[in-house]
Design a protein around this nucleic acid. Structure first.
Length: 655
RNA sequence: GCCGGCGUAGCUCAGGGGUAGAGCAACGCAUUCGUAAUGCGUGGGUCGGGGGUUCAAAUCCCUCCGCCGGCACCA
């Protein structure tokens, strides 16, 4: 005699067990049609499953966020059914809902081709039209195992055997297709929404590269056609932001076969790189860091001492000279410890914040390479803070503040923190870990940062914070990190003399804000879709003439802007202004100053912003002042890292 | 590294056993024009590399390299 409490607080009592579908029908025919699943005391149930006890319930329709996950999961099953009908020799494995869609992993000798996707999709639509009821069944464990073994579905049998013995084995039947599944599912195949199969890919069974590689088909699924269309448009828009494409179009960089995973920076790209580097240099200097430079090639003995040779040998590039094996540095830390070790250090020297724009090389697996985001030669905005254990909290707090401020300056107001604590295999005593983790947590609190716990994911030498920023189209990028390290100072024998006159081990905080400059630049390009803010744009202003009569004036305008420290190009070609505007707009130049007879006569310019349909007429002096102020950027840093004349910027020494 | 797809002019792409194509870009000439494509003309290629089949290979086969999408990896 279940009494069911609805979200509005009303209670419906029934004489006997009642299904979600029956409840919906009792409330109204509209709801009966729209209902997809039901929430029972916080868990999602199939509409066909009888509710026997009192419960708080909520009927879920396509309007509810929870429905989407069920729809996607069902679409995965739908795809598996279609695949089994079309290719009966295929074994099914798992097929979950994921962000924006679903996938299903199949085991099959012949891989699926892109053409197969269209065939499978067509069959899926037929199955939707059949509107097969989806029925939940609870099975006995060994019967289920035997059943799937009998079908030749060995992966499914394996999955059942791995399910904890206290959990029921549920199977779902739709048409002739029957699959092991936790559920819940929609009432019938006709209820799925709009979907599209996207790509085939390989994926290892259980995510382990030692196992068989399965054939994975990815798809996207939505409650209706409009949402599907919006999603496909969103993917297209994201593709237009691709840094590889924009990098070429904006003449920033290229990569080529003879230097796989290494970037050839072109003049404009290198300008952007240098602007970022000099900005960072200023920020670090102001935050009390000292900058160093350590060798690119270091003898293997140092890497043996640091432990890298043992753990990361296969990812290191090596070279030989006079019978010595040298390795291209994959990290900067051992080098920094060498500098720390030079001369006796006192507790008065701590914290010592040692920064390097460290050029590193790592032999990344070929399949991991991606544009300039994942490369083999890159530069870290790296630093190591040598400090005492007591100083960890304060140093971490200061670092978090610095990082947040820098992300804001680059146009990323939003970021999250992940806290990775002690892994199973680790170095160091538990008390040391207690202290390190406690210090990091205190620091987050002091910096006002919430974090999500990432249990067991810390480095073997210490816990770490990972900083994940969110870009303009909602994608997350892990850039910054801070890692507490008790191990390397020990291994490389770094020490300082404490107040007590005894030798002590310093703690090392490995930290980076942008991560790798290459990757960060890729993120910046994609975040801004190439339309970089004025202070970062490699070419800030193009002065374009209407006719050749104005050439002389245009040259003087460009000279004035250059004198003000702006990065300027001149366009004196005998092309129409419309053509010039189009070309420089495509090249993502933020400001076009058009000059013709009118401007030459009045000493003015017509200023047009990238993306704007209109332009503004203003006096040259006014334009120069305004652009200079804007181009100074967040630090009052004049363009090209050169201090602007007069006025507010007192930092010419930084160059 | 693994699975799949792809590699033709600077870029985007067509051609799929019988003389290598288009648009844009480049270059030249004309045009001097008011805010996202002025017109005409010209040049441009070992069809990713190597090997094989064939009278003949961009095209078919083998192999290597690279790129793209996933998976695995990311100190």
């Amino acid at each position: 005699m279940p009494r069911l409490t609805l979200p509005d607080g009303s209670v419906r009592a029934f004489e006997h067990a009642v299904t979600g579908a029956e409840l919906a029908a009792a409330i109204g025919p509209g709801l009966a049609k729209a209902a997809l699943v039901i929430e029972v005391d916080g868990a999602l149930w199939d509409l066909s499953r009888p509710i026997e006890q009192d419960a708080r319930v909520r009927l879920i329709t396509a309007k509810d966020a929870e429905a989407l996950e069920v729809i996607r999961h069902d679409t995965a099953h739908l795809m598996a059914e279609a695949v089994k009908e079309l290719y009966p020799d295929t074994q099914v494995t798992i097929g979950p809902a994921i962000e924006d869609g679903f996938y299903y992993d199949f085991s099959r000798k012949t891989p699926f081709t892109p053409e197969d996707l269209a065939i499978i999709e067509a069959r899926m639509k037929e199955i939707v039209a059949r509107n097969e009821p989806i029925v939940r069944e609870v099975w006995d464990r060994s019967e289920a195992v035997n059943f799937f073994k009998g079908l030749g579905e060995h992966y499914k049998a394996q999955i059942i055997e791995a399910i904890p013995s206290n959990e029921p084995i549920t199977l779902y039947r739709q048409g002739t297709f029957i699959d092991l599944c936790r559920g819940p599912h929609l009432p019938s195949t006709g209820k799925v929404g709009a979907f599209k199969l996207l790509k085939v890919a390989g994926a290892y069974w259980r995510g382990d590269s030692k196992n068989e590689m399965l054939q994975r088909i990815y798809g996207t699924a939505w409650a209706n056609e409009a949402d599907l269309k919006a999603y496909l448009t969103r993917i297209e828009e994201a593709e237009k932001r691709d840094h590889r494409r924009l990098g070429r179009e904006m003449e920033l960089f290229h990569v080529q076969e003879e230097a796989v995973g290494m970037v050839f920076w072109h003049p404009k790209g290198w300008t952007l790189y240098r602007v970022i580097e000099s900005y960072m240099r200023r920020r670090l200097e102001a935050a009390g860091y000292v900058e160093v430079r350590t060798p690119m090639l270091i003898d293997r003995s140092l890497w043996e001492a640091s432990g890298h040779w043992e753990k990361f040998r296969e990812h290191m590039f090596t070279s030989e000279a006079e019978e010595r094996v040298l390795a291209l540095k994959p990290m900067n830390c051992p080098g920094h410890v060498q500098i720390f070790r030079h001369g006796l250090k006192s507790y008065r020297d701590l914290p010592l914040r040692m920064a390097e724009f460290g050029s590193c090389h790592r032999a990344e697996p070929s399949g991991a390479l991606h544009g300039i985001m994942r490369v083999r030669g890159f530069t870290q905005d790296d630093a190591h803070i040598f400090c005492s254990t007591e100083q960890i909290t304060e140093e971490t707090r200061a670092f978090c503040d610095l990082l947040g401020s820098i992300y804001r300056d680059f146009g990323f107001p939003e970021f999250r923190v992940r806290f990775s604590d002690r892994p199973k295999v680790r170095a160091g005593a538990d008390e040391v870990w207690d202290r390190a983790e406690g210090a990091l947590k205190d620091a987050c609190k002091a910096a006002g940062l919430d974090f999500v716990l990432n249990p067991g994911e810390g480095a073997f030498y210490g816990p770490k914070l990972e900083f994940v920023l969110r870009d303009a189209i909602g994608r997350d990028w892990q850039c910054g990190t801070l890692q507490v390290d008790f191990v390397l100072p020990e291994r490389l024998d770094a020490s300082y003399i404490g107040e007590d006159g005894q030798r002590h081990r310093p703690v090392m905080l490995h930290r980076a804000i942008l991560g790798s400059l290459e990757r960060f630049i890729g993120i910046l390009i994609e975040n801004h879709a190439g339309r970089l803010p004025l202070w970062l744009a490699p070419v800030q202003v193009v002065v374009a003439t209407i006719t050749n009569d104005s050439d002389g004036y245009a040259v003087s305008v460009a000279d004035r802007l250059k004198a003000a420290g702006l990065r300027v190009e001149l366009d004196l070609r005998s092309e129409k202004i419309g053509y010039k505007v189009r070309e420089h707009s495509t090249a993502k130049v933020p400001v076009i100053l058009a000059v013709g007879r009118r401007e030459a006569e009045t000493g003015s310019v017509a200023l047009r912003r990238l993306g704007s349909q209109s332009q503004e007429a203003l006096a040259l002096n006014q334009a120069v002042d305004r652009l200079r102020a804007e181009a100074e950027g967040p630090l009052g840093l004049a363009p090209s890292g050169v201090a602007s004349e007069g006025g507010a910027v007192a930092a010419s020494s930084a160059q």
